[in-house]
Design a protein around this nucleic acid. Structure first.
Lengths: 188, 188
DNA sequence: CGCGACGTTGATTTGCCTCAACGATTGTGG
DNA sequence: CCACAATCGTTGAGGCAAATCAACGTCGCG
């Protein structure tokens, strides 16, 4: 497991073994069973979560009471409620495991301390955040412009493995389509 | 002008005067007339742009040949084509001044060097990127869920000054509505 | 076994787009 | 300084993508 994380970290910035050890000493590891909540709506999100294995979704409840899924995250992805984490406000989203999921947890205060002692770590997080921004902008631009059918095709191309692991109505939610209409689309 | 930027920088991280001077020595200043292009689609975006005064839009051309506006930026905002900047790929978007606009330009290579000599600057950019991510996610979540009418109301509340400065059909484009339909909405 | 979770189907409605045409305003060259 | 062209907002008719609502079939699980 440590090897996996180390490899991931070194993809963007090179850390020495002692730096990795220092970072690791601040991480907590936790296992979430299927349907368990990593974070509940309304709570302050004080952590960043790194997925070792498994699958989670983040979602919020819209004004009509429907769940809206904003993100799926798997192995080697970071999740958090960014707005809550940065502004220390109650989180609008919940994060929930869809399978048994292994997660590494880093606390905000610990992270800030690590940024000071290991500036390279701050660099890593700058880069990670930039990548998240690009991905989010991409979803924004592409999905607003595309018709439902094309969004579904795009999703299949980008995340083929998710089709197997995620129930269809959740994919519909992520794509902002009703389950009924997605079912219709799939016939063709 | 220098005071304005210094004040902005110090909102997130405190820099010494000598650090500010070092940063400033790497910045170029440029004035763009109305309708002038800061960046053209297809070019590699090697800079980040900081708006001193004025107003720009970023937009791309969709598959039907229509302009889609993804962002407006004013005083104290950063703009760039993030994907092009990070990956060094041709930019999908153009950036254009909608008014006479004063811009500070920082080159990517210079910025990377500054990150090494002034780690606090990297911190500033991490924070800026986080804020951009939050804003982008917000647009994502809210706009996908809202009907056109609500998006327009939301826009008016968040950016009341833009209404005066930006032609209506550009606001329509930003909100992913046709100008005709926005006109219809405004009647109520 | 029985219940809840999930996918499908069909009928109806609606939000929004498309296309075409028409004023009002601004700007520009002769 | 006027004439003509762009640019911009509005209006209306018609059409389609996608939502809503309700009902039903199927599977897996406690």
């Amino acid at each position: 497991m440590k090897e996996q994380v180390k490899k991931y970290f070194n993809r963007y910035v090179e850390f020495s073994d002692s730096e990795i050890d220092e970072i690791f000493s601040k991480l907590r590891q936790k296992t979430f069973q299927k349907k368990a909540y990593v974070l509940r709506e309304g709570g302050i999100c004080t952590d960043r979560y790194f997925i070792i294995s498994g699958l989670v979704r983040s979602f919020y409840i819209d004004h009509k009471g429907n769940e809206k899924i904003t993100q799926f995250a798997i192995q080697n992805w970071w999740v958090t409620s960014m707005e809550s984490f940065i502004k220390k406000t109650p989180s609008a989203i919940s994060i929930q495991a869809l399978e048994k999921t292994e997660i590494l947890i880093i606390d905000k205060d610990e992270l800030e301390k690590l940024f000071l002692s290991i500036p390279k770590l701050e660099r890593l997080f700058r880069i990670i955040t930039e990548n998240m921004l690009i991905a989010t902008q991409r979803k924004n631009d592409i999905y607003l412009q595309m018709k439902s059918k094309n969004r579904y095709d795009d999703f299949i191309n980008h995340f083929p493995d998710f089709i197997q692991r995620v129930p269809q109505y959740m994919i519909a939610s992520y794509l902002e389509i009703t389950p009924e209409y997605l079912s219709e689309l799939r016939k063709s």
